[in-house]
């Protein structure tokens, strides 16, 4: 991720200030997509409950990917769901970010040896922040959202490169690891 703030980038007074302003606005109004998958989805809902209250940071769930900035992948992604997940990501408007929540979304977690589980959601979509845990506490998700906020605020708009989108489509194309075996 070369977009993270580094000391070497050239600073421009006018445009640089404008960048900072836009980034600040963006980082203060991250709207996640309502997309719950598994156990972590319940903890994701709990992050917006009165106790943790992520609304304090200007984050509200949007029901359609067109209006959302952040996708929180909260649970195990299997090969059947992977195509749908990818389509949702493609439907989101730029700029967009992905948080991988929990062990299953990170690398398959306890289910990674299974025949139908995708070993990590970063094989399908580019991930910005990873949260370990099974499931992570709501506070851990909030910490990840704040980490993402820092990342957005540090980004420089003029040097925006196309994001590296995984091209590992094997997961999406092949239904089974050896799906060509003869039917018994």
């Amino acid at each position: 991720m070369g977009l993270l703030g580094s000391d070497e980038r050239p600073r421009d007074i006018v445009l640089g200030t404008l960048d900072d302003l836009i980034n600040m606005a963006r980082s203060r109004s991250m709207w996640p997509l309502t997309f719950g998958i598994a156990c972590c989805a319940i903890e994701m809902m709990a992050t917006w409950d009165p106790k943790i209250d992520a609304d304090r940071f200007g984050m509200f769930f949007r029901n359609t990917p067109r209006q959302a900035d952040v996708m929180i992948v909260s649970g195990t992604v299997n090969k059947k769901l992977a195509k749908r997940l990818r389509r949702l990501y493609d439907q989101m408007a730029e700029p967009k970010w992905v948080i991988s929540m929990g062990a299953c979304a990170n690398q398959g977690g306890p289910f990674r040896q299974g025949y139908s589980v995708v070993e990590g959601v970063d094989k399908i979509v580019p991930v910005d922040v990873y949260i370990p845990g099974c499931p992570p506490r709501p506070e851990a998700l909030l910490q990840a959202l704040l980490l993402l906020r820092d990342k957005i605020a540090d980004r420089e708009l003029r040097y925006k490169k196309p994001r590296a989108i995984p091209t590992d489509y094997d997961v999406l194309a092949e239904p089974g690891k050896d799906g060509r075996l003869p039917v018994l």
């Binding site: 040896q113 025949y115 239904p175 089974g176 690891k177 799906g179």
Partner: peptide, 18 residues
């Protein structure tokens, strides 16, 4: 599983990964 799958994964002739 999806219709295109050709294996029946719970058979003992396949390991956990299929």
């Amino acid at each position: 599983l999806e219709d295109e799958w050709a294996l029946h994964p719970l058979l003992k002739r396949y390991d956990t990964g299929g």
